[in-house]
């Protein structure tokens, strides 16, 4: 395959960035998107050009490290509207693109996720949200027997489904308001559905929403771009659960 990539190049957090074009002549359609960038970087290294910085780790679609906005879509995801299931950037393959296509690659754009270099952004804001309340308090020493607390099947299923969120930040990148509500909603729902999450339920939602807003994410307008971009298909109804929990927390 011959493709042209337009990539956001930025030397550092404060540097002015710009889109730079690169031509790639020998790309296999069986390569993953990140392998295509590896090929580009090897070529840039040989030519003495600074390689493109991008995040990746497991390359198995489960760590949440990679994330690129590809032709305006985070991870290239459209929520199945292009006939392909959602995935992470590392699990996206070049066969999804046409020969001769120009592909624009940008970093997540949100003031809460400042660009560190090229396509790498700082997602510490998500860690701060988790640290604010995305946990349960438990005594250390003797782990209780796992089956001691029964969990309703329906609740266990929902908690498990939303716990698949890998915190990649695609929801923020896709949101027209750069809101992190799908992420916060997934974490809130995950713990709110389980008995272990109940004691801290109302303080958790207030603390996590306060941290989310203080970090500079925007508000949710229920458009649904987040869910369409989510590699784990977290549904929009977690935001409803989040909203309801915050409303109920004010009465507690």
């Amino acid at each position: 395959m011959r493709i042209k990539v337009r990539i956001w190049r930025q030397d550092g957090p404060a540097a002015q960035g710009k889109l730079v074009d690169y031509d790639l002549d020998d790309i296999s359609e069986d390569m993953s998107f990140l392998e295509m960038l590896d090929v580009l970087n090897e070529d840039l290294n040989e030519r003495g050009v600074e390689p493109v910085a991008f995040d990746s780790d497991c390359r198995e679609g489960i760590c949440g490290m990679c994330g690129l906005v590809i032709n305006g879509r985070p991870h290239g995801n459209t929520g199945g509207r292009d006939g392909e299931a959602n995935t992470t950037t590392c699990q996206l393959h070049m066969r999804s693109f046409a020969d001769g296509e120009t592909i624009t690659i940008e970093p997540w754009r949100a003031d809460a996720f400042p660009v560190i270099r090229d396509l790498v952004v700082d997602r510490t804001a998500f860690d701060r949200i988790i640290a604010a309340g995305g946990f349960i308090s438990a005594n250390t020493g003797s782990a209780p027997e796992a089956h001691a607390v029964p969990v309703e099947k329906k609740r266990a299923d929902r908690a498990f489904d939303v716990a698949t969120c890998i915190g990649c930040g695609a929801c923020v990148a896709a949101c027209p308001n750069a809101s992190g509500m799908l992420f916060v909603g997934a974490k809130i729902t995950h713990l709110a559905e389980l008995p272990q999450g109940q004691p801290e339920r109302w303080t958790r939602v207030q603390a996590m929403v306060a941290e989310h807003d203080a970090d500079g994410f925007g508000g949710c307008t229920n458009i649904g771009e987040c869910s369409a971009a989510c590699p784990k298909d977290i549904p929009l109804d977690v935001i409803s659960t989040l909203n309801k929990d915050l409303r109920r927390s004010m009465l507690h």
């Binding site: 771009e225 369409a228 971009a229």
Partner: peptide, 8 residues
């Protein structure tokens, strides 16, 4: 974004 594409 330089390229914006809405899905939903």
């Amino acid at each position: 974004y330089a390229v914006r594409s809405a899905a939903a």
